[in-house]
Design a protein around this nucleic acid. Structure first.
Length: 885
DNA sequence: ATAGGGTTAG
């Protein structure tokens, strides 16, 4: 992060910590419908196994006999017999035969109970086609559908998954019973349309429909999903008033409602007051505590069940195992596994999947693979747990591979699978893989899912494609706080600070910024040096009680450091009770940027005294501090400590700091040898640090040697050419300057124009080099001309060299580059009261002439100037600068 | 005839 020589870096100023690693655990918003239970009483399988012989006998032997019989009866008798006949087949579960008979007697008015039996069977077999046939025959025969028959019709449609048609009949019906209300409410809840369930509940209240335990279970689930504690509590009151307070299913629903709303205390109280607890009550306690992050407490309930001899079932085992996963307790989960083998639950899918997830969450992917390969047929949950496990472990490639493999096996990834896979794509920054997942999402119409869209945006943002993220964001019909935070954080991380700020402003009318939002937006303020905006956000943090959060405080300190308000940063830093590695590192980097090397070293020492181990980032900070304060020996010491005591391999940024340190100390050939001896390939930044040193010490020969490397590695960067041209100019080698001018002209290099800005009363004024349209142009030009004249009069060596290279004809834009900071400073002098520090920020490094001019202004006009360039802060006061030249 | 607890995620 802390680079000294990047000529065009704004990335340096983006906070490296605060927002990046920010990942909040979030509550499960949606619940999925469980797959149909093949052992249920109404399932076709149980029927065939219960009556194997009679079913086959009837379907082969009876039909001809039945039709012969019916042909011989009189119409009246026949219709009675027809009813019994059809009902008989229905009871035997032979829908095909029953339907065949129905078609045969199509024109006859059969009994309502016959149609009921048929519809019941259609519902059980989920046979919508037959169900529709029955319905149309009923209508064609003009059968009265009031009462039970109407109810059955609704039941049939709903059971077959045709909720809308069921609802239509329900709405027309005049005899709605509580059963139908419950049925529909539940169905809406199952598909996640909790709002409609709630609407129906309120309608029931209005109409005075007598509610029962089913109603309450359902509505509590809905209010829990909608996180509406207030309404849920009203339901609780109603339950007590109507005397359902002793129904275990109802109380169990209340317990899980309170746990889902994060009110463990209320759940516990209900459990304590229960007279008759069943397995579900116990299981609700285990899962409730686990979901609220108190896994150990959940396990205690499981143990208590065993101690009291309560019958433990599959759900108890699964919850207990999930608790193990959340606290990564492999030992206990092995014990539970052994117990499950004895009890015979170990082969059940939910159990195996949870076991797999324990291994994956404990980081033991080999163990997870073992479970995965030994289970019969892994289902979608198994695959997803594997993918999520690989993604968590940083094995993105394996995760993405599995995604494609499961598709080949014919298993359709669902929303859980795609979000996990997207996470893997995001972590590895593989846009190409992410695009493939996106294509699949579009194909399956999953973009409507909020979580999926959020994961998509996160993936695009982390892969550096904010255009794609924006496209997803703009077409989302409903955005939650995560959506906004993902986009704002994405802009911040991708150095699009202005976009981050404007989206932050747009968000306000829709959603209240939370702790994550402010940690996402503060780095944007930091990178723009937008102190006023940062302070506003600080105010918001205080007003909303967000300052107890570690991430928030660290981001806040980082913002103050980078906006040049070191005093404020120190104040906040001192107030933190438990400073973590990030807080210390930010402060060390802060001292470094402001040129307080000794303070940085002292802070580093205090950090180690506090028992905090430095990592590679904190070593970058301290090395940067040493190089910028000329602490050569200390720098070497830290470099060696890092390698020998902490076994951290230096990376390019560490090497850059060291080269910078040597180069500034004038040890140019030592620096050259140092680079040559690096075990990793040096980049343009490393060589660039040496080139800067060559300029300070006017070493043209070395500069030429170094420049070759720099130009080769970054041929497009104008900054390097200008730097070498300046070195030539200062050595008065005009031939070479000219040669370089031609080179720059020929290459038609893309301009890297300098730009400076100053914030006055919350508004940023931007000055771009080469642009003559700026506010108060006349006064600024007059002031600068005046200052220049005085500088010359007072014999300030207004170096002709700078003037030559800057104002000559290299190229107009390049030549003017470096003057924007002068304009901004002059604007500050004109616009701010004398007591106020002039704070200017520049995207590139400050030019030498401007540096002289700033010193002069500080002395002549008695103004303090704080200028932040791409590398550090320059604090001008009484004619000198904190960077010591 | 409809429910309450149980596996995977941003």
């Amino acid at each position: 992060m802390l680079l000294t020589t990047k000529t065009s870096s704004t990335g340096f100023w983006v906070c490296p910590f605060a927002n990046n690693s920010r990942e909040k655990p979030l509550k499960n918003g949606t619940s999925q419908a469980l797959p149909g239970n093949p052992y249920s009483r109404t399932s076709p399988y149980s029927r065939t196994s219960l009556f194997p012989s009679s079913v086959s006998h009837i379907s082969i032997g009876l039909p001809p006999k039945a039709s012969v019989l019916s042909a011989n009866r009189t119409r009246n008798i026949r219709s009675i017999d027809n009813n019994t006949e059809i009902i008989k087949f229905c009871e035997l579960g032979n829908l095909d035969k029953a339907m065949e008979l129905l078609f045969e007697y199509e024109k006859l008015k059969l009994d309502a109970r016959t149609y009921c039996s048929l519809l019941q069977l259609c519902a059980e077999y989920k046979s919508i086609d037959n169900g529709r046939e029955v319905h149309s025959i009923i209508e064609r025969n003009g059968i009265e559908t009031g009462g039970v028959l109407e109810s059955k019709l609704v039941f049939m449609y709903v059971s077959c998954g045709h909720l809308i048609e069921g609802r239509r009949i329900f709405d027309r019906s005049e005899s709605k019973n509580v059963f139908l209300w419950n049925l529909l409410m539940n169905e809406y809840a199952k598909i996640g349309n909790f709002k409609e369930s709630v609407n129906m509940y309120y309608r029931m209240l209005e109409l005075g429909i007598e509610m029962n335990s089913y109603t309450f279970s359902c509505i509590l689930k809905c209010f829990a999903a909608l996180e509406n504690v207030v309404e849920g509590e009203k339901v609780h009151e109603k339950i007590l008033k109507l005397g359902f307070g002793s129904y275990s299913a109802v109380v169990n629903s209340l317990i899980s409602f309170y746990f889902k709303c994060g009110r463990s205390g209320s759940g516990q109280k209900l459990f304590d007051e229960m007279r008759e607890r069943d397995v579900v009550s116990w299981n609700s306690m285990i899962s409730g505590y686990v979901a609220n992050g108190l896994a150990v407490k959940g396990i205690k309930f499981f143990m208590e069940m065993l101690r009291l001899g309560v019958d433990v079932d599959l759900a108890s085992m699964v919850s207990a195992l999930a608790a193990c996963a959340s606290i990564k307790d492999m030992l206990l989960s092995r014990a539970i596994h052994a117990y499950a083998v004895k009890a015979g639950f170990d082969l059940k899918m939910p159990f195996t999947n949870t076991l797999l997830d324990v291994y994956a969450k404990c980081g033991d992917m080999d163990g997870a693979v073992c479970v995965f390969e030994n289970m019969g047929e892994p289902n979608i949950v198994s695959w997803t747990s594997m993918i999520a496990g690989y993604a968590r472990e940083g094995l993105s490639y394996e995760a993405i591979e599995l995604f494609h493999e499961m598709r080949k096996k014919g298993i359709d990834p669902d929303v859980f699978t795609v979000t996990s896979t997207l996470h893997a794509c995001a972590c590895s920054g593989s846009l190409e893989s992410g695009m493939k997942v996106h294509a699949y999402i579009k194909e399956k119409n999953m973009e409507t899912n909020l979580v999926v869209s959020n994961a998509l945006m996160d993936m695009f943002a982390k892969c550096g494609s904010m255009e794609n993220a924006e496209a997803v964001f703009s077409q989302m019909p409903a955005k939650d706080i995560v959506s906004w935070n993902t986009m704002i954080g994405g802009y911040s991380k991708n150095s699009l600070a202005n976009e981050a700020l404007s989206l932050f402003a747009k968000m306000q009318p829709h959603k209240r910024p939370d702790d994550v939002t402010v940690t996402c937006i503060l780095p944007a303020c930091a990178s723009l040096a937008a102190l006023d905006r940062g302070q506003e956000i600080h105010g918001y943090i205080l007003r909303n009680g967000l300052s107890s959060d570690h991430f928030v405080v660290n981001a806040l300190i980082d913002m103050y450091v980078k906006c040049g308000a070191l005093v404020m940063a120190k104040l906040l830093f001192r107030k933190i009770l438990s400073k973590d590695l990030v807080s210390w590192t930010i402060m060390i980097a802060g001292y470094a940027m402001h040129g307080f090397g000794t303070e940085a070293v002292a802070t580093f020492r205090k950090m180690r005294q506090a028992g905090i181990e430095p990592d590679e980032v904190s070593f970058i900070s301290i090395l940067y501090a040493c190089s910028h304060s000329g602490l050569l020996d200390a720098g070497w010491r830290f470099f060696n400590i890092m390698r020998n005591e902490f076994y951290i391999e230096p990376n390019l940024e560490h090497y850059t700091c060291m080269v910078d340190l040597l180069a500034r100390a004038g040890k140019l050939s030592k620096a050259y040898k140092f680079i040559k001896g690096m075990p990793i390939e040096p980049d343009a930044t490393v060589w660039g640090a040496l080139l800067c040193g060559c300029r300070i010490y006017h070493d043209v020969d070395m500069a030429e040697k170094v420049a070759e490397h720099v130009f080769e590695l970054e041929p497009e960067n104008t900054g390097h050419y200008v730097l070498l041209a300046n070195i030539y100019a200062e050595a008065e080698k005009w031939e070479e300057v000219k040669r370089l001018q031609e080179k720059i002209g020929k290459r038609a290099l893309k301009k890297n124009s300098g730009c400076s800005w100053i914030e006055i009363r919350g508004k940023a004024y931007i000055f771009v080099s080469g642009d003559s349209a700026f506010p108060q142009a006349k006064s600024i030009k007059f002031l600068l001309r005046d200052l220049r004249r005085k500088m010359n009069e007072l014999g300030h060596s207004s170096k002709q060299k700078y003037a030559l290279i800057n104002e000559d004809e290299i190229e107009k834009e390049v030549a003017l580059c470096g003057h924007s900071e002068k304009l901004a400073m002059a604007f500050g002098v004109l616009s701010l009261p004398p007591s106020k520090t002039i704070r200017v920020t520049k995207n590139l490094r400050i030019c030498g002439d401007c540096h002289e001019m700033a010193k002069f202004i500080s002395k002549m006009l008695g103004r303090e100037i704080l200028l932040r360039d791409s590398s550090r802060f320059h604090h001008f006061k009484d004619g000198s600068c904190s960077c010591r030249g």
